[in-house]
Design a protein around this nucleic acid. Structure first.
Lengths: 243, 243
DNA sequence: GGCTCTCCTTGACTCAGATCAAGCGCGAAC
DNA sequence: GTTCGCGCTTGATCTGAGTCAAGGAGAGCC
């Protein structure tokens, strides 16, 4: 069973979500208009174009943002992790499909009151701006991956993003060996990277054969040497994270 | 000679830039910290990684935002048109190369005072949030183009974006025939679309041969039938601009 | 146990777009 | 007027990733 927190004070995303900068009284105002929703892995949270009367944050689990063309080609345009924000204040309909990739808990705010609150409490708008700017940077990084990288580099890029995020959560950092589970199917990775699932599978096999990664089962990945992986991704080889 | 305006009140981008929502007194505060800079076509405004002590708006002309890999592969990640915002409050270095594609006039604000002003005047922060969200949407639209569209669809997508923007400026809308000049070289288009310049050239020739566009010289384009172009772009065929 | 379903892998073949290469047109410089 | 250089076009060939197709591994169910 998915357990849903109730109190903002001990919320796992308290210090990273839209509400990160809020003071106690501001939190209370938010608490008035919030409610939790849970979704099972595979469930669609919203369909593109549907009216959307809430915005919210991912509390736990992973969701994807995807765009689909009329003939069925799909491109993932966002990967939503805990603390990420969903929805756009000031817009009525959803612009993308949002799908729960794992079991998902969301902290939702009714849109109208949230918009109202945003006008009154600069802390929320400031934090949302900051988060949006970060997302824009991530999207631009991703445009380079989609437009200019080879299939092998794309896979290495995705793996290093997931590895880095995982390392930052677990705080077993500075170790050069990283271990994690892939949160995405081969097909979802393909949609993220603008590839087919066959190519994803082949390139993962190739990276495994070349010793860049180790695989246990289909999802459990070990990175014996992060800088090697970053090299394969075509990123700055020193692995420095820039400002 | 590039003529630089001096008074915000009759600034051509007054109602669309970061300052769009500002009241007269807020404008005056901005006016205190603003200065104009001009660049010639081809000049680099900032190099990625360089310290950046200003933010600003494009007043006239066009600039590009690009990312470059160590081996020289480049991907454009933004096309800056009049009223677009450059720079990120709260960040010290430039994250991308910014290059003037045409002669360019920018209205710059010293960064520190601008950040200060942003804290005090919600109108600026609000407008910046709105603009950033729009850019994020555009970036995501572009991810679909980069990841899933064919070369022909990519060219058609780019042409329809330029055509639509031009139509919205000139206000000769509702006409199905559009005429404009390409503001980009074939190479810049290739960098935008994740293609080579040869492929760009070939696809433009093909669209011309098929009567989707007409070309006069290398830059002057006529779109006899916009919905035909949108079909070629793989967009919703009705050409509706969604909310 | 066997059945089915989903996710994944691997092979053989094809093709869209990259690469390599030659040449055109036009404006600027001499 | 000639020459140069840049932006662009077009052709020939190559190749990385897509497509089509066959099957494997594991989980859940009867």
């Amino acid at each position: 069973m998915l357990n849903t927190p109730h109190d903002c004070v001990d919320c796992p995303i308290r210090h990273r979500a839209v509400c990160a900068r809020c003071e106690t009284d501001e939190l209370e105002a938010l608490e008035q208009i919030k409610y939790y929703r849970t979704f099972e892995a595979g469930q669609t949270v919203i369909w593109s174009g549907d009216p959307m009367d809430f915005v919210g944050s991912v509390v736990s689990g992973i969701a994807t943002l995807t765009q689909t063309m009329e003939d069925g080609r799909t491109q993932m345009v966002g990967l939503l992790l805990p603390s990420d924000f969903v929805g756009r204040p000031g817009r009525d309909g959803a612009a993308y499909d949002v799908v729960a990739t794992t079991d998902l808990v969301m902290c939702c705010f009714r849109k109208k009151p949230f918009e109202q609150l945003m006008m009154e409490t600069p802390h929320i708008a400031q934090r949302l701006l900051e988060m949006t700017l970060d997302e824009l940077d991530a999207a631009r990084e991703w445009m380079l991956v989609l437009g200019r990288k080879t299939a092998r580099e794309k896979i290495a890029s995705l793996l290093s993003i997931i590895a880095r995020r995982d390392a930052s959560l677990k705080l077993d950092a500075t170790k050069d060996t990283l271990v994690f589970d892939l949160p995405l199917t081969r097909e979802a990775m393909a949609d993220y990277l603008g590839l087919t699932l066959e190519t994803v599978s082949r390139q993962i096999s190739a990276l495994k054969k070349d010793g860049v990664i180790q695989l246990e089962g289909k999802r459990h990945v070990t990175i014996p040497n992060l800088s090697r992986l970053l090299e394969e991704a075509g990123d700055d080889s020193d692995g420095g994270i820039m400002a």
